[in-house]
Design a protein around this nucleic acid. Structure first.
Lengths: 229, 229
DNA sequence: CTGGATCATGTGGTCGGACCACAGCCTAGC
DNA sequence: GCTAGGCTGTGGTCCGACCACATGATCCAG
């Protein structure tokens, strides 16, 4: 058992027992080190891991905002894991796309069935109609649209995974933009597809919503020649 | 920019560029520290994060197995993230169950359509027929069956997520066993359902396979009173 | 008495150096 | 030629120190 794992187990146990809640602060690194009988560097390694896992947020200084504060931020660690494993080329892009299709078509179907409030989606689509958007800006709004749509289904795990997928592939998608024959024409098509998806969700047509978003995702990846399932 | 992030970015860049491949070793901590102009503790914090992310595996000693070796192990970090966030109670168990149903029914459907080789599943089911299995042993085999089934669809991301979900909830499921009215009777039912699922996959009946596994998962969580969607 | 400038305090961030345990390699001795 | 021992390089751990930062108490001037 490595020393820093003592801290990880301790924190996880206290979280599970409810003795540590979101918004509260971890004991100081020096205190933690003395309590567990280990050195401050070992504690720091554990805190770094917790930070990477989205469980704490560290800040210098004093006051209630400083120190290691318990948070619940599952998106950034999932993003980091996916990005790193995409970088190793042991996570095929095709599998990511397939997963997106599965999650998003489910979410669209659920959103349509629940007649979820889709006003936020419309704001994003309006923003995407602005002329002269750079590919980077356009894709960021596009990602926000897809993530927001996934969130409508009300499942925080699936929403987090979707947000992570989008963040992780952000760079790859932008790098593939030059593969597109005509960027302007592509945005026109994507915007129209988004509107159609929104319409289906609002109309309460689960099958239509799911089919439209499946075609939307598949179509883009084929056009951009990001290798496909 | 914190110092240890220098290492993370460096490693991710080298992975993406193909200069670091799986099985190769990271430079020694002392070397890395000097190359980046930072201290060894900072390097160590970064290595710990990479280890937690399943990108490297560290070992002491000398020889090709020692040091920080590049690996691709996405399951353990995903498991850790899910476990920690389950511990914070900001990840409802119901959402996890819903996600399982979505992923596993998809995987069962795919496996049935592809007529994937399901021999491994049968070995697991035979092992589950052994009399006198403890709930812990039974559930471990059960988890293996579900993960193996998810793997048949051939999507490494979905398989990794499924494996993580099972590992993360392992403890919670075992803790819920006392809620069951009759453990022995439950195992009889679960085994029969597993056989039915396997049969549907082998028969190439995607709809049946998906429906059976959905009912299988939902039924167990309702019986064990792990809160449901 | 009021208000702003200043310092004390406690936090994480970083560093250098030191020592240990471990595993493989290499060499000296048989 | 073979074996046993030491050598070397790896991560694992610790100590002590200093820095940067944000806060809040304190002090002094008005």
């Amino acid at each position: 058992m490595k020393n820093y794992e003592l801290v990880l187990h301790r924190v996880e146990a206290e979280l599970a027992a409810g003795r540590l809640r979101i918004g509260e602060r971890l004991p100081g690194e020096r205190v933690l080190a003395e309590q567990l009988g280990i050195s401050r560097p070992s504690v720091r390694e554990a805190v770094r891991v917790l930070e990477a896992m989205g469980v704490v947020r560290t800040a210098t200084g004093s006051g209630p905002e400083a120190g290691a504060v318990i948070v619940a931020e599952p998106v950034s660690p999932l993003t980091a894991v996916l990005r790193l494993h995409l970088a190793t080329n042991h996570l095929p892009m095709g599998d990511v796309v397939q997963t997106r299709i599965l999650l998003e078509s489910w979410a669209a179907r659920e959103a349509a069935e629940q007649q979820a409030n889709a006003d936020e989606l419309e704001i994003l689509l309006d923003a995407m109609d602005a002329p002269g958007l750079s590919p980077e800006e356009f894709h960021r709004l596009d990602a926000e649209f897809h993530v927001a749509l996934s969130g409508l289904a009300g499942n925080v795990l699936i929403a987090a995974v979707m947000a992570s997928l989008r963040s992780a592939i952000h760079g790859y998608v932008l790098a593939a933009v030059p593969n597109l024959p005509d960027w302007e024409a592509t945005t026109v098509g994507l915007r129209a597809e988004h509107r159609a998806i929104l319409k289906a969700v609002r109309a309460g047509e689960p099958d239509d919503a799911a089919d439209l978003i499946t075609a939307h995702i598949r179509g883009f990846y084929q056009a951009a020649r990001l290798n496909m399932p």
